[in-house]
Amino acid sequence: MRSRRRHPLLVPVLLCALAVLAARPTDITDTGGGSGNGVGAEVAQLYEDAAETAQQYEEGQRAAEKQRAEVQRLERLLDREREQIAVLNEDLGRIARAQYRSGGGLPLTAQMILAEDPEELMRGQRAVWQADLAVNNAIGKSRRAEARLAADEAKAAAAWQALERRNTELAELKQTIERKLQAARSRLQGQADASVAAGSCPGAVRLDQSGAGHTREWVAPLESYDLSSSFGSGGERWANRHTGQDFAVPVGTPVRAVGAGRVVKVACGGPFGIEVVLQHAGGYYTQYAHLASAAVDQGDRVGPGEWIGQSGSSGNSTGPHLHFEVRVTPSLGSAVDPVPWLDRRGVAL
């Protein structure tokens, strides 16, 4: 099984993204009074919220890991600085012991009286003073560096801990959204099953199309998916051979028009459950079946990448997926393999 997943290339600055998320309401109101429109829009919104929260959580995890690495780097520098100070203190101790052994405990006047060569004594004394001064200066410099590193380490650790706390909050928010999404999916699928059983469509679930359009002429019918049953495969679920390509996705996933076209059919009964059929230039048709809702009405014109419905498991289906067909007529029985058909149009599944 192959999969294709696309992710946004531009990730918002973490703190700005977190602020936006915090300002957004997480409780979705069903404005449709329990209608399919309300639940479908709720599922679509929850999908966006879940994706946004997951993206921010992943970005937060990367930022926290980077901050943790900075803390560890500062800790290593601080350890080395402290080791240097210990070495310098040992050097200072050796100088002091050398002074004591050479009579450094006596006043300088007494040392000069007792010395056989006072000039040699003075030269040695100056060397000791210079060494003592150099070591003291080095120790002072290292102490200042140690203080700066300790302050930087404390700031980095505080930032790391703040990121970890925020990541915990994001993880909890993500779980809350996912629970709401699961419940909304169940309601949406239940309404789809009821529509199929009644053989009547409730009307288009008009989804927010912001960001749904595409600049390319042809696209895949889903943004993220796992490929499952392929064209021509056999199985007890089909009378002959499988007439399309299946995409395994959760209930409520936005389904996209693969190219510009006109809606020639929206149906809500039979083995395909809720289905949409589009007519494209060149005499080809594409079918999107087993939907949980349709976002278009017959006669609508759509562009490539425009949302035309939400995936589901309506009709003769054993689990949530999109059944996608390419046909030379709008009717069943004229299907061609959709994978090479899309590949010739620059879409590799």
Rank of each mutant, 00 (worst) to 15 (best):
A138Q: 04
R126K: 12
A110I: 03
I113D: 02
P118D: 11
A131M: 04
S142H: 10
A127E: 02
N137R: 13
P118C: 12
W129L: 00
G124R: 06
T109P: 06
P107F: 09
S142A: 15
M122Q: 00
R126Q: 15
D117I: 05
G140A: 12
P118Y: 12
K141R: 14
L114N: 06
V135K: 07
A131G: 10
A134Q: 03
N137W: 01
V135G: 07
T109N: 13
A115T: 07
A127T: 11
P118I: 06
V135H: 05
R123T: 02
D117C: 08
V135Q: 03
K141P: 06
A115I: 09
M112I: 02
G124Y: 02
L108P: 11
M112C: 11
W129Y: 11
G124W: 01
Q130Y: 00
L121T: 02
G124P: 01
R123K: 14
V135W: 01
E116G: 11
G140V: 10
L121M: 15
P107K: 09
N136G: 14
A110F: 06
I113Q: 06
L114G: 06
G124K: 01
E119S: 03
I139T: 07
A138L: 09
I113A: 05
K141I: 11
K141V: 07
G140L: 10
Q125N: 11
M122S: 05
S142M: 09
L106D: 14
Q111D: 07
Q130N: 13
N137G: 03
E116A: 04
D132V: 00
E119F: 06
D117H: 11
R126G: 06
A134L: 08
Q130W: 06
A138M: 09
D132R: 04
T109W: 10
M122A: 02
A131L: 10
W129E: 04
E116Q: 09
L121S: 03
W129S: 01
P107H: 13
Q125F: 07
A127S: 13
V128K: 00
L106C: 06
L133F: 08
S142P: 05
P107E: 15
R126S: 14
L114D: 10
A131V: 03
D132W: 05
P118W: 03
L106R: 07
L114W: 08
D117M: 04
W129H: 15
E116P: 02
E120T: 03
P118M: 06
Q111N: 13
S142N: 11
Q111V: 08
T109A: 15
W129D: 04
L133N: 10
A138R: 08
L108R: 00
Q111M: 12
A131K: 08
K141W: 02
